[in-house]
Design a protein around this nucleic acid. Structure first.
Length: 440
RNA sequence: UCCUCAGUAGCUCAAUGGUAGAGCAUUCGGCUGUUAACCGAAGGGUUGUAGGUUCGAGUCCUACCUGAGGAGCCA
């Protein structure tokens, strides 16, 4: 009979509430410090880390030896009494009374990720184990909070979730390279790069909608800001103008950052994020036009000319002295997708907006107002060398009760990388898919 | 796709063209309050691959492979 069988099982996050009580905790050995007659196993269980104390004189010899001989990441269930302790990290520790070793990691194959430094190649090869580290744990918790906040924001602001297809015929926008997939006999489909076109149809049915799912880009981008598979949330609103889109994007970013500050402060501290910088993320965000951005870039020494898209260094220059995200709108038609509504006062620019995160994190949001006039849309399709017959259903939306409408897409990984203050988006998702990495 | 850099013990890194080393990890021994614990000892290597230069190559040259950073493209 296990003497601790009747003891309540708790998580480390709840430990403080059980001070003075005997409990059981199931987890993994994070680290073990030991001397001849006392040992300090650190246990993690996914909710936190707690230090246990095993004293030789207080335990059966068999139990003490089992603890002393534990290896890193062995799965164990411990029981003992929770006690406040100044010397323990976190302020609480468990006086160990009994231990059940679920699996002892054999020393012939010790846990590869030691408490010392590792290179990125090694860590990425061991991503399935790396997730157990304190830092990766914190990032995934923040990611979850960001996603939860996004859904809360839209759900409580009158939006309906309408999932859009992953398999799509041909190009959505005709710009980026897509992943091609065999679809039964003789047919090719492509992995989605955006749900926007479908969202436009859904918005005409439900008013305000959003889709939230994975997005695929077959671009051979090899930078700290790119994944081949990433998550994007895309709201779309009927009867909306560029101004409405900008206000929505601003409100979303403020809300998401606020939620992370409210619920994930501890994780931000693990990540050593400068929290003061996040606390400054309040409306209103600075708003400039593309033309003003070009003037600023030129005044700061950039070679850029009107009509060109921003490079990464341009984005950095624009945001380097910004404390809040920067909104840039009214881009030349030539550098944006076919569906952007032209500015009625300046037809050479379109009503698109990009939101650039501070601290050099680049574009986290892109969107704008869509063309609602049928003839203009057909004209733009032709100008972009896209076959109008491939967009028959999309053009229908302009035949049956067309209205001004718009929306945007926000990249979750870039957003999480910015909020967490990470060097690279590859750490913001459980198992990143990149140009030269699809395992594990 | 292009440019740059790197590849040495399980991991992180040293080594003037001249006997391949250290810390961590692992094993053994010591230690009753440790904080990436500490102290002592041991085992652990076809220096990414294939050629070449040289009396002699981890080091120099060529090609290739793998990875990283950046550019372009994009969220």
């Amino acid at each position: 009979m296990n003497p601790s069988a009747g003891v309540p099982r708790i998580t480390i996050a709840e430990a403080e509430r059980y001070t003075g009580q005997s409990v059981r905790i199931a987890g993994w050995l994070y680290n073990l410090r030991k001397s001849g007659k006392i040992a300090f196993p650190l246990l993690r269980d996914g909710t936190g880390i707690i230090q246990c104390v095993a004293v030789k004189s207080a335990l059966p010899e068999e139990t003490f030896n089992a603890i002393r001989n534990l290896t890193q990441e062995s799965s164990i269930i411990v029981s003992g009494k929770i006690r406040a302790e100044q010397r323990a990290p976190g302020g609480f520790e468990m006086d160990l009374e009994d231990i059940e070793v679920v699996q002892r990691v054999p020393e012939e194959h010790p846990y590869p990720i030691t408490p010392k430094e590792h290179g990125i190649e090694f860590l990425m090869d061991h991503r399935h184990l790396w997730l157990r580290s304190r830092r990766q744990h914190a990032i995934l918790k923040v990611r979850h909070e960001v996603i939860k906040a996004i859904r809360n924001f839209f759900d409580s602001n009158g939006f309906t979730l309408v999932d859009t297809p992953i398999f799509t015929p041909a190009a959505c926008e005709g710009t980026t390279t897509l992943f091609e997939v065999d679809y039964f006999e003789d047919e090719k489909v492509y992995l989605t790069q955006s749900g926007q076109l479908y969202n436009e149809a859904a918005a005409m049915a439900l008013g305000k909608v959003y889709c939230f799912g994975p997005t695929f880009r077959a671009e051979k981008s090899k930078t700290r800001r790119h994944l081949t598979e990433f998550w994007m949330v895309e709201p779309e609103m009927a009867y909306a103008t560029l101004e409405d889109v900008k206000n929505l994007a601003e409100a979303l970013v403020v809300f998401v950052v606020g939620r992370v500050l409210e619920n994930r402060r501890q994780e931000l501290e693990v990540l050593e994020r400068d929290i003061a910088k996040l606390e400054r993320i309040q409306a209103p965000f600075p708003r400039i036009s593309y033309g003003q951005a070009i003037d600023i870039l030129k005044s700061k020494g950039s070679e850029i000319e009107w009509g060109a898209d921003f490079g990464n260094t341009d984005e950095t220059i624009l945001t380097e002295d910004q404390q809040r995200p920067l909104m840039v709108d009214r881009f030349p038609a030539g550098i944006k997708a076919f569906y952007f509504e032209p500015d009625s006062e300046h037809p050479e620019v379109v009503l698109g907006v990009d939101v650039l995160a501070p601290e050099g994190y680049g574009e986290i949001i892109g969107g704008g107002q869509r063309i609602h006039n049928l003839d203009l849309l057909v004209e733009r399709l032709k100008a972009h060398n896209l076959p109008p017959e491939a967009f028959d259903w999309y053009l229908d939306l302009r035949r049956y009760g067309t209205v001004p409408h718009g929306g945007f897409g926000m990249g979750v990984e870039r957003c999480v990388a910015w909020i967490c203050g990470l060097e690279h988006v590859r750490e913001t998702i459980g198992f990143p898919r990149m140009l030269y990495r699809t395992r594990p």
